[in-house]
């Protein structure tokens, strides 16, 4: 299981008007690997995720998941085969109570059958359990609040919980830590570490490098839609191109 290539991206390209958002990107992710993707704003990180998860159709190239070509599949298909993603800007269901947000992924075909008979009580219980895992105390009134009234940090965690609901094999999180306070990040770190420890494949887009480097083994650096470096965090920060493109002149002090 380990060291098997679970996700393979081949020459993936997409342009928006004259901008080459993603320009011939190829890489492989091994099962159980935790990969970080970094790069300046507009370097194509989010587009890359959208291409992999089917939200944007590629102009060229292909994506393989466990050896099967999944290019051009509908987003819900890709989610149901085990690739879950979070959004950079939170997209919760604002008018529902918090724990009801998780009923939606639990209602998908992927998870529906695993919950015994799909009885409503089971789904509510599963949702509460998952919420507890990402840091919503069951005893507090937080899970029952209307989602729109939650602080931003909790919405980010909810976004993550929605991914985990699908029992995914690949978890893709898009800038989870942005907009979170230091203490919220500190409480979210164990969740990320647990995802990796469980043997799930993790792809993380992140700007907060110190936290990112604690979770991931490999880092990929994008700029202008191309991969400019890939390696361990230590290797990557030494690459001259990366310093210029991403870390700027203050590249010595990481983050």
């Amino acid at each position: 299981m380990q060291n098997e290539v679970i996700l393979k991206v081949q020459d993936l390209s997409r342009r928006f008007g004259g901008v080459r958002a993603v320009d011939g990107i190829s890489f492989e992710v091994k099962s159980g690997e935790a990969l970080g993707i970094i790069g300046p704003n507009g370097s194509g990180k989010s587009t890359l995720i959208n291409l992999i998860t089917g939200f944007v159709k590629p102009d060229k190239g292909a994506v393989f998941y466990k050896g099967n070509n999944i290019t051009g599949l509908k987003p819900h298909k890709i989610a149901s085969i085990g690739i879950a993603r979070s959004f950079q800007t939170v997209k919760p269901f604002y008018n529902l109570p918090v724990y009801k947000n998780l009923i939606i992924p639990l209602y998908s075909n992927r998870v529906k059958k695993q919950l015994k008979g799909g009885c409503m009580g089971d789904r509510d219980e599963a949702a509460m359990h998952l919420l507890e895992e990402v840091g919503f105390e069951r005893e507090s009134n937080l899970p029952y609040k209307i989602t729109g009234t939650l602080p931003h940090g909790y919405l980010k965690k909810l976004e993550l919980a929605r991914c985990l609901c699908l029992d995914p094999e690949i978890v893709i999180v898009d800038e989870l830590f942005s907009g979170m306070s230091m203490s919220e990040i500190a409480s979210a770190m164990p969740i990320m570490e647990k995802i990796v420890a469980e043997g799930k494949t993790l792809i993380m887009i992140e700007h907060r490098l110190r936290e990112l480097f604690r979770v991931v083994q490999g880092v990929m650096v994008l700029n202008f839609g191309k991969i400019i470096a890939r390696g361990t965090p230590e290797e990557v920060v030494k690459v001259e191109e990366v310093k210029e493109a991403y870390l700027g002149k203050e590249g010595e002090t990481v983050a």
């Binding site: 998860t53 939200f55 509908k74 987003p75 819900h76 989610a79 149901s80 879950a84 993603r85 979070s86 959004f87 997209k91 919760p92 269901f93 604002y94 008018n95 529902l96 939606i104 992924p105 209602y107 998908s108 075909n109 992927r110 998870v111 929605r162 991914c163 609901c165 699908l166």
Partner: peptide
């Protein structure tokens, strides 16, 4: 109604 993108991402057609 709230966010169809999230429903897509939740694996629902």
């Amino acid at each position: 109604r709230d966010s169809d993108l999230s429903v897509h991402a939740a694996g629902i057609n």
